[in-house]
Design a protein around this nucleic acid. Sequence first.
DNA 1: GCGATAAAAGTAAATAATACTTTTAAATAA
DNA 2: TTATTTAAAAGTATTATTTACTTTTATCGC
Lengths: 229, 229
Amino acid sequence: MVSQQEYGLQEKHLLAVDCVIFGYERGELKLLLFKRQLEPEKGNWSLIGGWVEPNETVEQAAERVLLKITGLSRIFQEEVRVFSAPERDPGGRVVSIAFYALIDIKSHNKELVNLYDAKWWPVSNLPDLIFDHGQMVAESLAKLRKKASYDLVGRDLLPDEFTLTQLRQLYNSIFSQEFDPGNFRKKILSLDAMVRLDKKDTGESKKGAFYYTFKPESEMNVAIRIINL
Amino acid sequence: MVSQQEYGLQEKHLLAVDCVIFGYERGELKLLLFKRQLEPEKGNWSLIGGWVEPNETVEQAAERVLLKITGLSRIFQEEVRVFSAPERDPGGRVVSIAFYALIDIKSHNKELVNLYDAKWWPVSNLPDLIFDHGQMVAESLAKLRKKASYDLVGRDLLPDEFTLTQLRQLYNSIFSQEFDPGNFRKKILSLDAMVRLDKKDTGESKKGAFYYTFKPESEMNVAIRIINL
DNA sequence: GCGATAAAAGTAAATAATACTTTTAAATAA
DNA sequence: TTATTTAAAAGTATTATTTACTTTTATCGC
């Protein structure tokens, strides 16, 4: 029998969260980045982060950061993974948990974003990021793609009412590929996850495209395959 | 412009890893659990865990724990998620990262397992676990199922040489369902991920079943769908 | 050689994916 | 007021995959 080590004798760690905030606007998938305000790497582009407090979960810490920056609560977010290379932050040993979040750019608070010196960047054209934040973004995008391939992800990125064309364009931008309009429509409608409204968007075509809304999450059949990887 | 908080002013956290160790033996998926050796909950069944040291990554901490208990290195492991409810451990605020690992039970060091007062349990019949360890196991199983549905998982759980029947039985036990022998064989062979050896296992049938080995990981085509969820 | 056993191979129907074409609705120009 | 244009929406034919089976094969023990 071998003994375990006591709680009190252990070294403690600085714990942070970093948020990869995806948004969607005018046919483009975007990422909210901000200019770092303290040394090291002050002034360079980074993810939005924050410390984990003793009385909260890491998810709550991420929600707190998200609320502070966007003014939004109840945002969809998912843990990416723990980043813990001892030298990842030259300022000291910080273990950071990366989360990715999905928001509708139109619905967030732009003044707060300005206040924090943040900016939306197209994911297809990102600046260099500090530390391992580039890796965090790459893994978040991979997770988002995986999720989008077996789940409908529009709910958090699109406005409440959207057209099938807008949903397809969102998928085009997530996967950086063009989906066939007819087949995409057929596949999506077969999932029976949305309701067609009696309203049309005439901005894109003369005929006009029907608006749809998502059915409540509770009515959704899960684990439906949308894109075949 | 809003200022960020300095590193030095922050509260630190105890950081641990907990390992959900899956093994496979005689048609059954099993989990390695051990009797906790310190208060609180001393003597109750728990996952195998350890503290994260300042000079290592959380993955290295999990590898260290796995080596200590099984004698094996280079084990397949994957992060499940961070468990950080403030009251999850009655002994104090401990943030724990759960990992799940896959090993071939035959190849591990049984003396070490005994030394640590550990025991293999069938996943279909687990004892109550301390803290949130039951939740860690449930989420690990879900992750393993997801992985097994788009990847071949036998490589880490089966011996080097195995029959298609053994691989199918592994899948049966992971998904708690019976896969059709003919269709399973057809699907698996179509992936072209294994090599048939000139050797048969005659233990299970009079005709005998050919042994197979996995092709090197580098030759594998990725993201093949095995089970349709 | 014969029956028993599970492996291995084969088959036919149903379902789904893919690459297209055609029709529709509404705005605009001739 | 009719033709033209646009993208939405519907439809279609081919191919590929999945599913539920049946048949054949190899080998053991009698």
